[in-house]
């Protein structure tokens, strides 16, 4: 693989993605747009929690729900961001065929397109958590945060999500008319099976096992442990595992899904070329 070509593909796709994401309006409205949506999503859960708990935000359940929901923003942003680039380029801008004939590497181009969503997602995550700490007493003590574990988990998770996005991008290449739903449906399913906003024990037994196979389950658990260790460990689902064991499982599952992502994308890419699907538009 030619490194400079790969780097150029990634870099230019990142720049293009950022322009598409941000230049449809003025910076103020873009900032409002980037902040209001995730904060409202978090606020729905906050009100639901406050109604039932009579406003008692000191229960360990609250930071569990709040932080899980905040970091879950990355799943929608990164994973869906990568796969959505196919829909955007093929159906909306009708430029995917030009990308295919340009001297770039398509998988890296698609991953680069996801970076803009990663940046806007990061802003949303930071603002959501800051609002939680300032106004809702989410017990984040900066001196007690396990920073190495936090950053290691965060980086691993973002790479894992990007590879899942590549896998979905491959499937999206071969599908018509409902391609836009694929990313959202997968993100929705992961929201339930990863225990993002409730402990996995709440799920019925058969469904709980599905959650144990999802890398996002371990990713969210490690993020919670690195930020609010004692509270996260209060929930029984994964309490038998040490941080090292959880990290090992996360790495193994990330490699598995990463390899699957590359394999599925290559296979779907070949099918899409053979069937002439790269430049197909359906007006949906």
């Amino acid at each position: 693989m030619n490194f400079s070509e790969s780097w150029r593909s990634f870099r230019m796709a990142t720049w293009l993605g950022w322009q598409i994401e941000s230049n449809w309006t003025d910076p103020f409205l873009f900032a409002v747009y980037s902040i209001v949506k995730p904060l409202s999503g978090a606020a729905i859960l906050v009100v639901m929690y406050a109604v039932i708990s009579q406003g008692d935000f000191t229960s360990p359940m609250f930071p569990y729900i709040y932080l899980g929901n905040a970091f879950y923003i990355y799943v929608g942003a990164v994973m869906t961001g990568v796969s959505w680039a196919v829909v955007d380029d093929r159906e909306h801008y009708k430029t995917l065929k030009y990308m295919y004939i340009a001297p770039i590497r398509i998988p890296l181009y698609l991953l680069g397109r996801g970076v803009a969503r990663f940046i806007t997602g990061s802003i949303a995550v930071i603002i959501t958590i800051t609002a939680g700490v300032l106004f809702l007493k989410v017990p984040l003590n900066f001196a007690e945060i396990n920073w190495p574990l936090f950053f290691l988990t965060l980086i691993l998770g973002v790479i894992m999500l990007a590879m899942l996005g590549l896998l979905l991008a491959g499937i999206t290449l071969t599908v018509a008319r409902h391609e836009g739903f694929i990313g959202e449906a997968t993100a929705g399913a992961l929201y339930i099976f990863s225990g993002a906003v409730f402990p996995l024990d709440v799920l019925p037994n058969g469904f709980r096992q599905v959650g144990f196979f999802m890398p996002t389950t371990y990713w969210l658990e490690l993020l919670r442990r690195s930020l609010v260790g004692n509270i996260a460990e209060a929930f029984p689902t994964l309490s038998a595992f040490s941080n090292g064991q959880l990290l090992g499982i996360l790495v193994a599952l990330s490699i598995f899904f990463g390899v699957m992502g590359v394999f599925v994308f290559r296979r779907c890419d070949r099918i899409a070329r053979e069937r002439g699907l790269i430049d197909r538009t359906t007006n949906y």
């Binding site: 639901m48 929690y49 929705g188 993002a196 906003v197 409730f198 709440v202």
Partner: peptide, 10 residues
């Protein structure tokens, strides 16, 4: 399903 499970957890 997700929101029902949140209420059940609470």
């Amino acid at each position: 399903i997700a929101y029902v499970l949140v209420y059940k957890a609470l």
